[in-house]
Design a protein around this nucleic acid. Structure first.
Lengths: 218, 218
DNA sequence: ATAAAAAACTTAACACTGTTAATTATATTT
DNA sequence: AAATATAATTAACAGTGTTAAGTTTTTTAT
């Protein structure tokens, strides 16, 4: 079985090599420059070889998008040590924004570009695993916040969606160059100011958490 | 001068014809199909003729993006008859969301795609007029809301940015297919639910507007 | 009316893109 | 060593934005 194993390993190696080259091109030179031909040139193979390892370009961008989620999830690991639900929620938002600002190309792939979703649609499991899992994590923390009276107990699904949207909206408007001329002075700090403002708004929803909170009567 | 006038009119006519063809292709067949060659085919001119009327593809998309703002602004005109500031703010949001849901391709061009901003960057007036003007209108209404105690008086700039971002986040996540699998049951209503939830959150910031509102002492 | 000048438009070409079919080279099995 | 399977390549198709050079049409001046 060792030859078959080696064969498989070689396949996986080249598969990874393609992805690494694509990632380097994508993060350093952008979406436009990440062509099949440029990836092939980088790994010194012919362009068509790539099609023996990935169905099409969308499949490559989907794989990159998965790597993006892996990175984001790894950064979210520090939340395990944050006991207070609302502190955890706030930290979650900071990590999300920080990730987006430091990895704009990757963020775009994960939450803006069509390619990864096109791949999902054409695959058998037509479900967006990465997004669904991440959103579930947000809902859990939000549920904790509501249970402990940090937030008015409303529909978790739509509340989580609003919070996610507010963060996505801020970073995506920034990444897609919609802030530059609207906030000429503080274009570099507007997302942070926005986030601080959002936190203030949420905090002022309930002034004294736990203390004055009326628990649901049995 | 009548010949010169006719000449100019002809130029404007073809200029508009190009734009109309581009708009039709774009809204009906999408971004990919809106190529210079396809536009040319539609108006029965050679592809290179288009370059006599528009600098490049970005210029065409910028012009389409301008038409998008013209349409959005026209829809916003009904706000003139809404006296109550907070009612006006809420209606503003509904119009914004409605526009995005009914004109997804156009919305994408206005707030997501790079092409129009690339054109702005390379033009002399490197300012995004359309966006800046619209944002100013939001700030004005928000300022009215704060003055009348419907909202805690905080920094207008960043508060307006958060509200805009929340709306943009919701509709852009929807348009870019990030809601489909996360909200399988209510994927068609999640944006509306989200907006209602957002309004509720803002309304619960101050329970009794005007009545219990403490005005700043002199 | 006719020749010169200007404007409008087209053809041909360059350097790319994703993707497929057919072909060659390499490695494994018999 | 021959047959088979795997891997990688070349050539080609149909498309993209864009530019330089050439042609047709229209306007101006004689």
């Amino acid at each position: 079985m060792s030859i078959a194993n080696r064969k498989q390993k070689e396949k996986e190696d080249l598969s990874k090599k393609i992805l690494d080259a694509a990632m380097e091109l994508f993060t350093q030179q952008g979406f436009e420059q990440t062509s099949i031909r440029n990836i092939a040139k980088k790994i010194e193979y012919s362009p068509t070889t790539i099609y023996l390892y990935y169905k099409d370009k969308d499949a490559i961008f989907h794989a990159l998008h998965q790597q993006g989620f892996a990175l984001l999830n790894s950064q979210m690991q520090v939340l395990m040590h944050v006991e207070e639900p609302f502190e955890r929620l706030k930290a979650m938002g900071r990590i999300y924004i920080g990730f987006a600002m430091e990895n704009p190309a990757l963020y775009e792939l994960m939450f803006i570009q069509s390619a990864p979703m096109d791949f999902v649609e054409e695959s058998e499991e037509t479900i967006w695993q990465e997004g669904t899992t991440s959103f579930a994590a947000l809902k859990l923390t939000l549920e904790d916040c509501m249970k402990n009276g940090y937030l008015p107990a409303q529909d978790i699904e739509s509340t989580a969606f609003v919070i996610w949207s507010a963060l996505h909206g801020m970073v995506s408007l920034h990444i897609k160059n919609r802030c530059k001329t609207i906030f000429p002075d503080n274009r570099n700090t507007i997302v942070e100011s926005g986030y601080n403002n959002l936190i203030l708004l949420i905090e002022s929803l309930i002034m004294q958490p736990r203390k004055n909170h009326i628990s649901a009567s049995p």
